[in-house]
Design a binder for these strands. Structure first.
Lengths: 213, 213
DNA sequence: AAGTGTGAACCTCTTCACAGCA
DNA sequence: TGCTGTGAAGAGGTTCACACTT
């Protein structure tokens, strides 16, 4: 069971972003220590991560930027791309809508939902907004597998269940609660309150060297 | 060197939130397995986490809600509270401003900054906005130790350096880049792009059981 | 000479499992 | 009896260190 570390997945996505930037600057090759510096890690870790996707460099020139980007795409992307839905068109929802609009070609928000009638039936940051009732048919109809939750804490659990029932397999959750879903649904929590309290904790104690990543 | 796991810090903050909710419902005691269910973890982990702050329960009634909340506060908070600054008043910055306004009594955003003159000298979600030039004197003057970065990727590094130079010790970074700062500054990255790509990855592969947390 | 690929050591965090307690 | 507190084992991820390549 030679499985890939979960944390490696996230970093591969980061490497790709960095490499795309380098490619735009016409860099053709780079060494593990260069990518490590950009990504904030160690060369050994970069090499391990790339080992996971089976991409090989060579001691003379390191890794080929172009080829590595392609390998990463092969590994991370699905051939058809993955449409995403967002639920909760509040301040945060709108900010996220604008954040993700028109960046990733294979990962884009196709519809937003809200239970408030006043917020629906318009287009925000290029994304059409629908009432909650239409969520199941949209998700199922378009075969959507990824959802983003930006509703208030109290509504997150039922919304998550609706997404799961409609066929979503992965959820990015911005609501500050833990979701209880079947184990085959992947949930990534973006808990800003927790993150800020963690930062505050370490900012206040500040040992000589605060934990790295 | 009996140090506390970094991940425990985040969960302690989560426990406190959950306990505050329970207290509001007049619950006085609870067992590790109850807190574990709410927090999405295991009872053993809850017990370990609480062990870290030296709070003791007893086999008959578990943990006392009131006392545990107080212990958590003792451990997580500083006596005087921690004012926070935010830099970057775009869509995301404003959403975060509204998200954090008036929740935490000991952790609140006191000032926001932006380099765009059109965005400053007004009050957004109860928070006054200042031009970038005033950042050093404000941060230093008020002894602020925590900063939130919501500027575009290209501006994040110089902004982070300005914050660090002004005396900030911990940064919550929403810009999708890694910051390069001295090791005594704690940085927590909230990389939404990376998080979404991770979710998309697991949503697409969905093994029978996706990694837990 | 300087980098890659990787077995093995290491470290961090989680879970097991059980003695002890109310 | 059913919980807590915790030593010890385990899992997951990182780093070391070195043979190998160009």
């Amino acid at each position: 069971m030679n499985s890939i570390p979960e944390k490696t997945i996230g970093r591969l996505s980061l490497y790709r972003r960095l490499l795309n930037r380098l490619r735009a600057e016409d860099k053709t090759h780079l060494y593990s220590y260069e990518l490590a510096t950009l990504a904030g890690g160690t060369p050994a870790r970069v090499r391990r991560d790339l080992m996971a996707i089976g991409y090989n460099g060579n001691p003379a020139h390191g890794y080929e930027v172009e080829g590595l980007i392609e390998s990463l795409g092969h590994f991370l992307d699905t051939p058809q791309g993955q449409p995403v839905v967002l639920v909760g068109i509040g301040n945060l929802g709108r900010a996220i809508l604008s954040f993700f609009t028109g960046r990733r070609p294979r990962l884009y928000i196709v519809a937003a939902f809200d239970s408030d009638p006043a917020k629906v039936n318009r287009v925000i940051h290029g994304c059409r907004c629908y009432p909650m009732q239409e969520l199941p048919e949209t998700v199922r109809g378009k075969g959507i597998t990824v959802g983003i939750i930006c509703v208030p804490a109290g509504e997150a659990q039922p919304v998550a269940e609706q997404l799961a029932a409609a066929g979503v397999r992965g959820i990015l959750n911005f609501a500050p609660v833990r979701l209880h879903l079947p184990g085959n649904i992947y949930v990534e929590d973006m808990d800003m309150t927790m993150a800020l309290e963690k930062v505050a904790y370490f900012a206040a104690r500040k040992p000589n060297n605060v934990p790295g990543k």
